[in-house]
Amino acid sequence: MAKPKIATTSLAGCFGCHMSILDIDERILELGQLVEFDKSPINDLKRFRGPVDVGLIEGGCCNEENVRVLQDFRRHCRVLVSLGDCAIMGGVPALRNMIPLKECLEEAFCHGVTLHNTNGRIPNDAEIPLLLDKVYPCHEVVKIDCFLPGCPPSADAIWEALLALLHGKPVELPYELIKYD
């Protein structure tokens, strides 16, 4: 039987959830035996190779590119998991939701004490994806099947949830593994 496939991505996140995946330590070797990785920042597959059993999403959506990637994950993944607080509710990046974009822009590119930007130039190249008005949690953009809280969720929580999902069992984590910070 072919190995189950998983895919991961980081949208508007800090990569801490991906670090927490790697915090399974020696179980990384076991994971390599257990599953096959499709698209993920820890390998060099830039596009999906085919359908995937479980997709793990870190981070919410702060720009159009995040939305495109998230929709692509939804199309390819049988089960989609919001991994961590940013995917679930925007997290720290969503602190910008209370502030007008113009102010943020001017603070970053016009006001900084070390800035050397006499003409007040703001990055606007076509290569740069458009920012969304707010940072959105993933479930407001696509259907999400499973939510794993934490900033980040612990390696043990990720491991237990992943094993359950790969074996088609309900994810029932012990109380000790559910943390919200």
Partner: peptide, 16 residues
């Protein structure tokens, strides 16, 4: 050939 950084957070402003 260019390396682009394509995301934003806004710490400098929203930390205020």
């Amino acid at each position: 050939a260019r390396l682009h950084i394509v995301e934003f957070r806004g710490f400098e402003r929203f930390i205020q």
